[in-house]
């Protein structure tokens, strides 16, 4: 208990809780964790009832309960000792990029048509992915410049020439993270970038030059530059 709570408070102090849960739960989590921390300290220093001398179970149940305790402690130790991290492209490809519509506030085609030209540079990969799901008419994307940040996930059908610049969308916590991404057509991209690298991609959508990829459109990038992982790696 102490370990897990201390780890949570620590994560909160270093602003890394966002790696695991949606920002709206952070205050509640911190309040509860601090309360628990107080109780943990109080119970170590305070006086309380004598634990009854139960005979420990024998045989298989005993082995199981020790094993369980070891596994639980290992996870608790990992929480403190290992650096926190975001989900990786392994989960992104396992969960099928864009397999479900993401987020309640997605962009609609009619809204986007009337948007001023400079609005598009603020669109995230999620905005673009939701537009791509609604229309693949190349005319719609003409003269709309793309400027997005995300991590690299190789395309399943044409990993040499196409990758997704992708983000996870979180509604509650990392468990429910849904990957969203837009395809980028850049032949032989892996000579410069590796999967899971965070990149900033600028360019415009055009007909996908790859013949094996199933995506009709892809970003033809003006530039793909390596960037630091953002402090809030997930989108909401």
């Amino acid at each position: 208990m102490g370990l897990v709570v201390a780890a949570t408070v620590w994560l909160a102090a270093t602003n890394q809780l966002v790696l695991y849960i949606h920002p709206r739960y952070i205050v509640f989590t911190i309040v509860m964790a601090v309360l628990a921390l107080i109780l943990v300290i109080a119970s170590v220093t305070g006086r309380f009832r004598h634990e009854d001398d139960e005979a420990p179970p024998r045989g298989v149940p005993r082995v199981l309960s020790i094993l369980a305790l070891v596994i639980a402690s290992a996870l608790a130790l990992a929480m403190v000792a290992l650096p926190p991290a975001t989900l990786t492209s392994a989960t992104a490809s396992q969960r099928d990029i864009n397999s479900t519509s993401v987020g309640p506030q997605t962009q609609s085609v009619s809204d986007a048509e009337n948007a001023p030209a400079d609005a598009f540079s603020n669109f995230t990969v999620v905005d673009w992915a939701s537009l791509l799901r609604q229309t693949v008419d190349p005319g719609f994307y003409e003269a709309k410049s793309v400027d997005v940040v995300g991590f690299v996930t190789p395309d399943a059908d044409d990993p040499q020439n196409v990758f997704y610049v992708s983000r996870f969308v979180v509604t509650c916590c990392a468990v429910d993270a849904q990957p969203a991404g837009v395809p980028v057509y850049l032949p032989d991209w892996s000579s410069v970038h590796a999967a899971d690298d965070w990149v900033r991609v600028t360019g415009e959508f055009a007909v996908n030059g790859s013949d094996r990829s199933q995506q009709p459109l892809a970003i033809v990038p003006d530039a793909v530059t390596a960037v630091e992982q953002p402090s809030e790696p997930y989108l909401y």
Binding site: T29, M32, M79, A85, T91, C173, V175
Partner: peptide, 12 residues
């Protein structure tokens, strides 16, 4: 990451 996320979410 996923396991810790379940823990952090359930803990409070």
């Amino acid at each position: 990451t996923l396991s810790i996320s379940v823990v952090v979410e359930s803990l409070p």
